[in-house]
Simulated scan of single mutants.
Amino acid sequence: MDEKYTPYNHKGTKIEGIEPKHRVTPAKKSGLSNRQVCIIIAIQRFGHTIARTLNYGKPSSIDLLKFGECFESKSFVMLDCSNSYNEILESKDCTKKMLISHES
Rank of each mutant, 00 (worst) to 15 (best):
D2Y: 07
D2N: 13
E3H: 14
E3Q: 15
K4S: 15
Y5M: 14
T6R: 10
T6F: 15
T6K: 11
T6E: 13
P7Q: 13
Y8K: 04
Y8P: 00
N9S: 15
K11P: 00
K11M: 04
K11R: 12
K11S: 11
K11I: 04
G12F: 14
G12Q: 12
G12M: 14
T13K: 13
K14L: 14
K14W: 15
I15C: 00
E16Q: 13
E16L: 14
E16I: 14
G17K: 02
E19D: 10
P20C: 00
P20A: 00
K21H: 07
K21W: 02
H22M: 08
H22Q: 10
R23W: 07
V24T: 07
V24S: 07
T25G: 01
P26T: 07
P26Q: 10
K29S: 09
G31V: 06
S33W: 04
N34R: 15
N34P: 00
Q36N: 14
V37K: 10
V37E: 08
C38A: 14
C38S: 14
I40S: 11
I40R: 01
A42H: 09
I43P: 01
R45I: 04
R45E: 11
R45D: 06
R45K: 11
F46L: 09
F46K: 15
T49R: 15
A51P: 03
A51W: 10
A51E: 13
A51V: 13
R52W: 07
R52I: 10
T53Q: 08
N55I: 09
N55G: 05
Y56Q: 13
Y56S: 12
G57F: 10
G57M: 05
K58C: 04
P59E: 15
P59H: 14
S61L: 02
S61N: 14
I62C: 01
D63S: 11
D63C: 09
L64A: 05
L64K: 00
L64Y: 03
L65N: 04
L65A: 04
L65M: 10
K66H: 11
F67H: 03
G68C: 08
E69R: 06
C70M: 11
F71S: 03
F71T: 02
F71I: 06
E72I: 04
E72N: 14
S73D: 03
K74Y: 05
S75G: 03
F76H: 09
F76Y: 09
F76D: 08
F76M: 09
V77E: 11
M78K: 08
M78D: 01
L79V: 06
L79S: 12
D80R: 05
D80N: 13
N83L: 05
S84Q: 08
S84W: 02
N86C: 04
E87T: 09
E87Q: 09
I88V: 14
I88A: 02
L89Q: 00
E90V: 05
S91V: 05
K92E: 02
K92V: 03
K92Y: 02
K92L: 10
K92F: 03
D93M: 05
C94W: 01
T95R: 09
K96E: 09
K96R: 06
K96P: 00
M98Q: 05
M98N: 07
M98D: 06
M98C: 03
L99S: 13
I100C: 09
S101C: 08
H102G: 11
E103V: 04
S104G: 01
